[in-house]
Structure formats: structure tokens, C-alpha cells
């Protein structure tokens, strides 16, 4: 079994193509996601969210295979999908929540959705909230929390099942600079035990959190490598931005 180009990958896509009508969102993409933080970069419409939806099992490719945690998605039926989903954590870009639930109740609810055993659910929820420094606010209603706190609860719910694969779609959007700094540490910590795939527009986030970076453009992989390799690409100043601009050109410059 080949996991993209990386045999150590926790998740991988191989030659996947996804079409929405006449639009090809992903075109023959092959990528592997090992333990650590992988940043997905690319302009709007590059295929980042489509790739995340494949990794979260929300969608299936029209062509190619998606392998998650040793299971080929679609080949193992209902049980395999459920088993994979039990070990994935997802923070959607537009993270919805139930305003009347307390933070603890909401994370516990997420644990229930991910089939965390009932006797462990409350402890796991508390632990997840502690990891995102929200334990003091565990009893507060979600509707009363600030944007930054909600994002933290979002991370907590994504890690409550101790996932092997964490998918974060624009996790720092809407946070102030100080909150973003805290968040980066949090995400880096997550990457020590899990494969974290983070889609982002923010070069700073990439520079501070990602071990590996993949750049997508028009549904294809333009670059896969380490931060140093991206920065080493020909450019003005050897930064993430310059490497990225080299890959996507000025019209793709959204960083």
C-alpha cells in the first residue's frame, strides 16, 4: 500500500480527482500526511477545502483513493467509515455551536458524536478544555464566549477523541494577534502526537506551526516539502511569502 509519497503517512490521497459539474476541484492529487503539522496553502479555489472534505470522509473522490488510518475510504463499508471517523478530529472553517450548551457540555457532545466511551467522556472533555486553557470557562454557555474562546472550544472538540488525524480549516481566522500566537503553540503541540492538516491563508501561521507544507493551485499540487524547502525557493527574501509567490505567481497572492 502506498500512502501518497510517504510510507509513514497517517492519511494519504493518491491520484484523486474531484469534479463539481464541469469544475475540476482536485486533479490527480497525491499527498501523504505523516504525524506533525502539515500546512495546506493556496489561493481561493485551489482545492484546499475539497481536500479536507476528502480527508474528513465528508466527500469521496471521483477518481483515485483516499487512505485514512490504514483504511481505504469506501472500500470497507459503513463500519470502516465509522471506525475512521472515531479517530479523526475536525474543526470546520465555519464552526457552528449550540449557544445554550456550556463549553463542557458541547465538548462532551462532540465526544459522544465520536463514540468516546461513555465512562471516559466527561474526563476527556475536561482534559481537552484544559489543553486549550478553557477549563475555567467550562461551565460558561457557548453563546457567552468570545470568538477566541469559541475557537479554543472548537479545537477542544476536535481533540477530545484523541484523534490520530486532526483537520483544521482556517483555524486562526477571526482571532486577534495575541490569540493567534497562543493558537500556534496549541496546534504545534497537537502535531506531536497526531497528523494535523491545517488549511490556512496566513504565512505567519505556516511559518510558526508547520513541519511540512503543500501548496495547491487550480486543483493540483505545486509544492510539497518542509518549511525550509519552501523558503529556499527562488524569491525576493527567502520567506514563506516569497516561496509561495514563486509558486503561484502574483495573481495567486493571497497571503
Amino acid at each position: 500500500m502506498s500512502l501518497g509519497n510517504d510510507p509513514a503517512a497517517v492519511a494519504a490521497v493518491e491520484q484523486v480527482t474531484v469534479r463539481y459539474g464541469s469544475l475540476t476541484a482536485l486533479d490527480g492529487v497525491s499527498l501523504g500526511f505523516p504525524t506533525g503539522v502539515t500546512g495546506l496553502l493556496g489561493p481561493n479555489g485551489a482545492g484546499k477545502s475539497t481536500l479536507l472534505s476528502l480527508l474528513s470522509t465528508a466527500n469521496r473522490p471521483d477518481e483515485g483513493t483516499v487512505t485514512l488510518l490504514g483504511e481505504t475510504v469506501g472500500a470497507g463499508g459503513r463500519r470502516a467509515v465509522r471506525s475512521v471517523r472515531e479517530r479523526i478530529g475536525v474543526l470546520p472553517q465555519s464552526f457552528g455551536h449550540y449557544p445554550r450548551f456550556t463549553a463542557l457540555e458541547f465538548v462532551e457532545y462532540a465526544a459522544w458524536l465520536r463514540k468516546v466511551p461513555s465512562r471516559e467522556r466527561r474526563d476527556r472533555a475536561r482534559e481537552a478544555l484544559r489543553q486549550v486553557a478553557m477549563e475555567k470557562h467550562a461551565g460558561r454557555r457557548m453563546g457567552d464566549l468570545s470568538g477566541g474562546m469559541l475557537r479554543r472550544v472548537g479545537i477542544a472538540q476536535a481533540m477530545v477523541n484523541r484523534p490520530a488525524l486532526v483537520l483544521l480549516d482556517e483555524p486562526t481566522v477571526g482571532l486577534d494577534p495575541a490569540q493567534r500566537v497562543g493558537f500556534r503553540d496549541l496546534i504545534k503541540g497537537l502535531g506531536e502526537h497526531s497528523a494535523v492538516v491545517m488549511s490556512t491563508h496566513l504565512a505567519e501561521d505556516v511559518a510558526h506551526t508547520c513541519d511540512r507544507i503543500s501548496v495547491l493551485l487550480e486543483g493540483r499540487v505545486r509544492f510539497t516539502g518542509t518549511l525550509a524547502e519552501l523558503c529556499a525557493l527562488p524569491g525576493e527574501d527567502g520567506t514563506v511569502e516569497s516561496g509561495y509567490l514563486h509558486l503561484v505567481g502574483p495573481e495567486g497572492a493571497v497571503l
Partner: peptide
């Protein structure tokens, strides 16, 4: 209907709990 009002449908649908259990 909260899954639509609070935009949690896509998130909840891609978890291990079946729609029936929810």
C-alpha cells in the same frame, strides 16, 4: 433544526454517530 440554524450539520454528519443515533 439547530443543525441548520447553528451550521453544525456538516460537522455532525461527518462524525462516527449515525444520523439515526443523532
Amino acid at each position: 433544526g439547530r443543525v441548520r440554524r447553528h451550521r453544525t450539520l456538516a460537522w455532525a454528519e461527518t462524525t462516527a454517530r449515525s444520523g439515526w443515533e443523532q
